[in-house]
Design a protein around this nucleic acid. Structure first.
Length: 370
DNA sequence: TACTCGTGGTA
DNA sequence: TTACCAAGAGT
């Protein structure tokens, strides 16, 4: 009969954190007081987003909007432009709405209790707990993907995700220390990000290795258990790239909500599994927003979203300098394209349309997708 | 509850 | 190349 495993001690994790904590742009140094604005801004950016990807955006936002008042006072479009490329654009809209709410409801200071935080736009259970713990050192059960993985392994939770979330959350709550709530939350996430990683966890370096049921099982990477994934369908569409003689490009504003809501777009037709891109240019051009001398750039621009893949044929047309923009559209100057609130999928379509040779006939050889 | 909602990095 | 993955929220 093996000896009973040691229970995981919060102190052991905190001691590990004191030696191995990551230094991040939004994080206070030991002894410093955390800035709730920076913590909030970073937490929104880090939702489903890697530290590496969010870092440059965080620094740009902080330089442009030093505090919540500056952010609230800015036009939404400025926020969307600065967010372009980071994805999940409802975060940017909610970020702006949340800044205004903090000004109006809380006199410009972030609330410290979880319930009030949870009531703010874009702040869900995880983010409310994270801000309460990290920015205000309040006791809160902070459960993100890292914590779920650490806890699922620590206790060898057999129930598959996402159904196991309630069980994992209650197990996580049992680990809480009597103090240093913010450090503990960050320690859990640092452990998950650097030691208890999804693929090859570095159990030899883990302060909780002697307490970990998944490690004892011999295959810690099998936790958390996961249900089978759904297949990702492909949709097809046509992008209509209109270039004026001076290089300006015709763009539109997307509807305020939904996919890429509020962002700038290159005009396209419907995105559907039923669109056939192998038909003639004239057929594809029949659905164009207006008549023009359309030519097709060989190949397609491809992009993968969370729940579907997209292939866009790109038709290009050149119009005289004097051409007015059609209703609902505007000309974006060539020099301004980089700073437009243009999501990556449209930047790809743009690049595809600008790069490839154009033809009025179907391509003889299928080019590699750009 | 289950689906919607981006992007870039990695093995 | 494909598939998975990353400090989730809103509906």
């Amino acid at each position: 009969m093996a000896a009973a495993a040691q229970p995981p001690s919060p102190g052991a994790l905190l001691a590990w954190y004191d030696r191995h904590r990551r230094r991040l742009p939004w994080r206070a140094e030991p002894g410093e007081r955390a800035d709730p604005y920076r913590i909030w801004l970073s937490e929104i950016m880090l939702q489903q987003t890697t530290v590496k990807a969010a870092g440059p955006y965080f620094l740009r936002f902080l330089a442009r909007f030093p505090d919540v008042r500056a952010l609230a006072a800015a036009p939404l479009d400025d926020v969307l432009k600065l967010w372009a490329g980071l994805g999940y654009y409802s975060r940017a809209r909610n970020l702006h709405a949340c800044a205004s709410a903090v000004i109006e409801r809380h006199a410009g200071r972030f609330p410290s209790n979880e319930a009030a935080l949870l009531a703010l736009p874009g702040v869900g259970p995880y983010t409310a707990a994270a801000i309460a713990a990290i920015a205000f050192d309040r006791p809160a059960t902070v459960v993100d993907g890292n914590v779920e993985r650490v806890v699922a392994r620590l206790f060898a939770v057999e129930a598959p995700m996402p159904g196991a979330k309630p069980e994992i959350r209650s197990l996580a709550a049992t680990l809480a220390p009597p103090a240093r709530h913010g450090d503990f939350a960050q320690a859990m996430m640092d452990l998950g990000a650097t030691i208890c990683t999804p693929r090859k966890p570095a159990c030899a370096l883990c302060p909780w290795s002697e307490s970990c049921a998944a490690r004892r099982s011999g295959a810690p990477e099998l936790y958390p258990r996961k249900a089978a994934k759904a297949v990702r369908p492909t949709r097809y569409g046509v992008a209509y790239l209109v270039r004026r003689a001076d290089g300006a490009v015709l763009v539109r504003q997307r509807p305020p909500k939904g996919l890429l809501g509020g962002m700038t777009e290159i005009p396209t037709g419907d995105w559907s599994a039923d669109v056939d891109l192998s038909v003639s240019v004239s057929t594809l051009a029949a659905d164009a927003p207006f008549a023009a001398g359309w030519r097709r750039v060989p190949g397609v621009a491809t992009h993968v979203f969370t729940h579907f893949a997209l292939e866009l044929a790109v038709l290009v047309a050149e119009l005289p300098l004097s051409t007015p923009a059609p209703p609902g559209a505007r000309w974006a100057a060539a020099d301004d394209l980089a700073s437009e609130a243009l999501p990556t999928v449209f930047r790809k379509a743009l690049a595809h349309g600008m790069s490839g040779a154009v033809t009025s006939a179907p391509p003889a050889v299928r080019r590699a997708a750009s």
